[in-house]
Simulated scan of single mutants.
Amino acid sequence: MAQYGNSLVKKAKTTSEQPCTFTANGVEVKLTPATVKNYLVSGNAERITDQEVVMFINLCKYNGLNPWLREAYCIKYGSSPATMVVGKETFQKRADADPNYNGEQAGVIVETADGQIERREGCLVLENEQLLGGWAKVYRKDRLYPSTAEVSMTEYTGRKSDGSPNGQWSGKPATMIRKVALVQALREAFPARLGALYTAEERGYAEPVEATFNEVPEADAPTPQQTSGKTPMPDAAPAPSDADDFFAGVE
């Protein structure tokens, strides 16, 4: 009986590490739970659960996302639930690929020195102005009116436990809020392509694009076709000074 029980355990372990293979943009992607835990989790990778890993793999599989090309991120800080988000460029590329896509406009909403509310294209905010939010319009050839979005700084700014803005929300708030508005308008314009996807900026922080990479063993390393000559996903995102509070105010 003991031998029979051990064989079941061994079989279960082997099954759990079987790769999940799927195609993303014509490229074969192969992921295992071990690969995700070791190389594709930003933040506190040691805290991620098996359930969260499976959810991330399925997010990539059913949405055709290649995490080695930074199309999807699995982010884990402290005891907070892991967050799975996609890169803003993924939204842009999928919109560009739709034959009905007909351009976009996006910018910031500011209160000028004389108290006027102005919707300005781009990210320019003067020193004597207050940044209130962001706006965007996405046009489709088959629709009479554009899909629009306006978002406020108070709703989306990521904050630390002391109430101060965290990460890029502190240094580049206009860029961040413009991104939030744009991806929301893109999602409304193309719900079939983007309906279930959200970006890091919408969750109160920036994409984890800067990191120091560990060497990936040959067995787990992505093929040249998977990376297309690009840098693999970061091993960990730069943590804020109060990482456990990264998700403060995030629904």
Rank of each mutant, 00 (worst) to 15 (best):
V9F: 11
K11W: 14
A12Y: 07
S16R: 05
S16G: 07
S16Y: 06
Q18F: 10
T21E: 02
T23G: 05
G26N: 06
E28W: 05
V29K: 02
V29R: 01
K30W: 01
K30L: 10
V36Q: 05
Y39V: 01
L40C: 09
S42Y: 01
G43C: 14
I48V: 15
T49P: 04
D50V: 10
Q51N: 09
V53H: 09
V53A: 08
C60M: 05
Y62M: 02
L65K: 01
N66Q: 06
P67N: 01
L69K: 00
R70N: 01
E71P: 01
I75L: 07
K76D: 11
Y77D: 14
Y77N: 09
G78T: 08
G78A: 11
G78W: 14
S79P: 08
S79W: 13
S80H: 10
A82E: 07
A82K: 04
A82S: 11
T83K: 05
M84I: 12
V85E: 05
G87L: 04
G87Q: 08
T90M: 15
Q92H: 13
Q92Y: 07
R94W: 05
A95N: 13
D96Y: 06
D96L: 01
D98N: 15
N100P: 02
G103E: 14
E104S: 12
A106Q: 10
A106E: 12
V110H: 06
V110W: 09
A113S: 11
G115V: 08
Q116L: 11
R119E: 15
E121H: 01
G122C: 11
V125L: 07
L126D: 09
E129G: 09
E129W: 05
Q130G: 08
Q130R: 08
L131H: 07
L132V: 13
L132M: 14
L132N: 14
W135Q: 13
K137M: 04
V138Y: 07
R140C: 13
D142T: 03
D142F: 04
P146C: 00
P146F: 04
S147C: 12
M153R: 00
T157D: 00
S164L: 02
N166S: 08
W169V: 11
P173L: 06
A174L: 05
T175C: 07
R178H: 06
A185E: 08
F190L: 08
R193L: 09
R193V: 09
L194G: 07
L194F: 00
L194N: 04
L194Q: 02
G195L: 12
A196L: 00
L197R: 00
L197Q: 01
Y198D: 05
T199V: 03
A200P: 03
E201I: 02
E201L: 00
E202Q: 08
A206F: 06
P208S: 08
P208M: 06
E210N: 06
T212Y: 04
T212F: 08
E218Q: 06
A219M: 03
P224W: 09
P224V: 10
Q226R: 00
T227C: 01
S228H: 03
S228T: 03
K230H: 02
T231K: 13
T231V: 14
P234H: 07
P234T: 15
A237N: 10
A237K: 15
S241M: 09
S241N: 12
D244K: 13
A248Q: 07
E251P: 10
